[in-house]
Design a protein around this nucleic acid. Sequence first.
DNA 1: GATGAATGAGTATTCATTCAT
DNA 2: CATGAATGAATACTCATTCAT
Lengths: 194, 194, 194, 194
Amino acid sequence: MDAEARKEQILEAAAGVFAGRGYHRTRVSDIIIAAGVARGTFYLYFESKRGLFEALVERMFTKLQAVILPIDVSSQVPPAEQLRENLLRVFSVMYRERELNRILLHEAVGIDPELDERLSAFYEAVARFLDESLETGERIGFLRVVDRPIIARAIMGLVKETVRDRGLDAPELDTAALVDTLLDFVLRGLVAGA
Amino acid sequence: MDAEARKEQILEAAAGVFAGRGYHRTRVSDIIIAAGVARGTFYLYFESKRGLFEALVERMFTKLQAVILPIDVSSQVPPAEQLRENLLRVFSVMYRERELNRILLHEAVGIDPELDERLSAFYEAVARFLDESLETGERIGFLRVVDRPIIARAIMGLVKETVRDRGLDAPELDTAALVDTLLDFVLRGLVAGA
Amino acid sequence: MDAEARKEQILEAAAGVFAGRGYHRTRVSDIIIAAGVARGTFYLYFESKRGLFEALVERMFTKLQAVILPIDVSSQVPPAEQLRENLLRVFSVMYRERELNRILLHEAVGIDPELDERLSAFYEAVARFLDESLETGERIGFLRVVDRPIIARAIMGLVKETVRDRGLDAPELDTAALVDTLLDFVLRGLVAGA
Amino acid sequence: MDAEARKEQILEAAAGVFAGRGYHRTRVSDIIIAAGVARGTFYLYFESKRGLFEALVERMFTKLQAVILPIDVSSQVPPAEQLRENLLRVFSVMYRERELNRILLHEAVGIDPELDERLSAFYEAVARFLDESLETGERIGFLRVVDRPIIARAIMGLVKETVRDRGLDAPELDTAALVDTLLDFVLRGLVAGA
DNA sequence: GATGAATGAGTATTCATTCAT
DNA sequence: CATGAATGAATACTCATTCAT
């Protein structure tokens, strides 16, 4: 087995164990048993339990960032639709990678000040992206003017909570409806007879 | 010092330490040093580190639940205003109890399956409350008809994230503006020229 | 049992184990079994295995330094006799503390650069003492002029090797004869018919 | 590269690493990196880390024994001069093989009961040689009668300590002076006006 | 012969909890 | 009630050695 594959094998196994037992309750033993490798092999590919976990978190960041595409106003596709597609892709990744999802949203917090910082930075980046998207929307007259930093955070939280709540077991089929519901809410609000 | 006061003293000290170092990184030693009590005394008042932490979490639940009042349609106060006052009180509690806030939002996750369950139940209850509030709003024709469970969760997430982001250091004075921004967003949405 | 006594108990037990198995081959388990204390207790009194060992080495340094008294030329006792008494006391300590002796002479080397440095410094100090003693001897005309730093080292080595060789099992009774033999050698040399 | 050369290459590299880090702190990894061979290759030429180390120690024994020549009373060269030449050769080997020197004098102790025994045996042999030399000296009336076993040990210790202290960095040129100083001390002692 | 990925036995240290005083 | 010395289960990580290629 080549080195990359072996690393992947361990990563995969670890994701399952971390998702199931949480970071603190999983022992290195759990991981190597799940991966079917020897103890030493683990440390051949990862510096430490914490190092492996970080790799998992980074992997999820990468996957998410890869599907969040900037809104392109010059595109044929309307901005609102682009936003919708972004959201769809985010939900899709979150659903496909349920285990990593759980790790990101539940286990990655409070391990370590450094990792906490890394998490903050990621969410900060996402919030910034949303902020810029809002700005674009404002500029083209599609969205009204709001306190962007606050609203950007709020939207991120709204998505995070939905993913946390439904991202693990909702059948993927419903994702489109979910996204439409959320978008409709975000865009039009709740007040009747608008 | 009477028993209740002693218990309070430990609880207070523990909240500070947990907030600062996180659950897993705080040792019982940290707590007893901060509280200025002997090791044995700790176990006179709490069953375990985990038990003390749970007490802290429950305390926060209680405080929050105490300020989230059901919308009373027969009241003089308009429902929207009642909602606003609920939110204001939530932010106020969260700001006043920054440490417990941090514990609830950051540290309480992934300690323990049982505690995770307890957290879920609490958030479930809050979501249910929001769901019911939405229903009330629908019924009186103030709000439009939406997929309530989803929207309830989304609103909760939106509030949680805002608190997480700004709840720790934002001066309390801004709270009203924050709440108004959020409510305006939730009610009217983002689309321009509605 | 009071703290000092408990510490002593562990120190004593550890000295025996280190002397018997050497530093690297003794596990903390060996020490706590020999001392009859729990694992945690060990770390209550010592920072680490290495820390305990260092304490043992320091203790030996202290004991040795306590019996090596500066030559006092104004004393009633002749300098040669003072030197002889110093040596007698050194041998006596080494014999009484056979275990620590073995630790110092055999086990303490190569553990750690820092500890190596500590050892060097001690021997350096002893060599310096001998150098000064030689100087005193020269000044009062008792000894001839030699390359003192070299001779001081040589004398120290001569004593160390004798202790290493005979210090462990020679009955204490012979010590006086041993010291006399050594002194006679050092003072008069080996050439016949001087 | 032929087998013998490959073995030599590893031995050489290992000597450097052992001398620098000490036996316990050098890992097989250090040695194979220094030697530029693969891990498996190491075990093709040596049974174990300990086995390689032993080979190094034996090599030093051999080198030393090769330069310590028995005193030949029937030779043209006076016995004292033969002794001096022995010493000169010992210092010379020790200086040329600084690394092995360090291994022998500092690292080889306490590795292993068996190796400790081997060391003792070697020093025992050297002491015996000195004892016999003293006896020869006595017989021909050059030396006075002393407690030979003790004095033999003492002389060995005196040389060992000098080598330990100055053998690593003293320029070889000074060796002759050093040996003369030592011999003068051993033969004539320190007392003034003999 | 040479390689280096894989192995797993071995061990120091931490820290929540207990209990005799 | 209060104390804090004592306990020991739990666990991440190292590194000499093996063996399939």
